[in-house]
Every structure is written in C-alpha cells, then in structure tokens.
Amino acid sequence: MNLFFNTEDASQIAIGAFAMALPIAFSQEAWDMAVRLPTINLILLVLLSLVFVAHYAYFSLFQGAVEYRWGSFVLRIVIAYGITLVVVACVLFCLDKLPLLEEPVVALRRAVIIAMPASLGAIIVDSLDKE
C-alpha cells in the first residue's frame, strides 16, 4: 500500500469534503452558530475533528502501522484538514456566506463549524481505494 500523497488523494479529499459540507453549508443554524458559539467551543471542534480524522487515518489508511511513518501520518491529517477548509470556504463563498473582508472572524468560524463533518467525509472518501 502506497501512502504517498498525490493529486488523486487530494481530489478524493476535496470530493468527500464537498459532499459533506454542501448540505450543512446551506443551513441557517450553522451560519448563526458561528456568531454565537464561544471560541473555546470552536477550538474544541477543531481538535475533535483532528482527533477523529487521525483516528480514522491511523486505523484505516495506515492500518495501525505508523511507527516509521509519523511524518506521513501527520502530514496527511494536516493536508486533509487544510483541503477541507479550502473546500468549505469555496462553498460558503459561492453561497455568499463567507464575509472575508467584512467579518473575517465570522468567516473563519463558519468554515471551522462546517469543516467538522466535512473533514470526516474527506478522509473516508480518501480511504476508499486504499484497501
């Protein structure tokens, strides 16, 4: 099993993130939650997302064998979450719900909230052809 990251992996992550982000990005609740959710809860959402993505990648993509590939393991998680944030931002931008210039903090908060489920969809789709 080759776990080198390539454009196919990036495409799979983007498609998985898009599939999970799309229905949530249309939600008024998600838009409003970004304004009123405390910052500590947003930080916890990011950490929870990263923990679940790492857990899934560890057992599915890497099949528990990361002893000599910690760099690849961590890089894959960071790249997957980064691509997810970009995809979510693009979706929100298309919906005119990413106020980057007017309210950049709200824009980032919306992206983080929607990236939580989207990151799981991203890593799951990425793992589909690895078995």
Rank of each mutant, 00 (worst) to 15 (best):
M1Y: 10
F4G: 09
N6F: 05
N6L: 00
E8Q: 08
D9M: 12
D9V: 09
D9S: 10
A10Q: 05
S11M: 11
S11N: 13
S11D: 05
Q12M: 08
G16S: 10
A17Y: 01
A19D: 07
A19E: 00
M20I: 09
M20A: 14
M20E: 00
M20G: 03
A21H: 02
L22N: 04
P23M: 03
P23D: 02
I24C: 02
F26G: 04
Q28S: 09
Q28L: 07
E29G: 01
W31V: 14
W31Y: 07
W31N: 13
W31C: 05
D32L: 13
V35S: 12
V35K: 15
L37T: 14
L37W: 02
P38Q: 12
T39M: 14
I40T: 12
L44Y: 14
V46K: 05
S49I: 08
V53L: 11
A54V: 11
H55G: 13
Y58V: 05
S60R: 12
S60Q: 11
L61Q: 03
Q63P: 00
G64M: 03
V66T: 03
E67R: 03
E67I: 05
Y68A: 04
R69N: 11
W70C: 02
V74Y: 08
V74P: 11
R76G: 13
I77T: 04
V78S: 12
I79M: 08
Y81V: 15
I83T: 02
T84E: 09
L85D: 09
V86D: 06
V87G: 11
V88T: 09
V88R: 10
C90S: 10
L92T: 04
C94L: 15
C94Y: 07
L95Y: 07
L100K: 09
E102W: 11
P104K: 04
R109Y: 01
R109V: 00
R109T: 06
R110Q: 10
A111T: 15
A111R: 04
V112D: 06
V112M: 14
I113A: 11
M116W: 13
M116I: 12
G121H: 07
G121C: 02
A122K: 02
I124M: 11
I124P: 00
V125E: 03
D126R: 02
D129A: 11
E131K: 10
E131C: 03
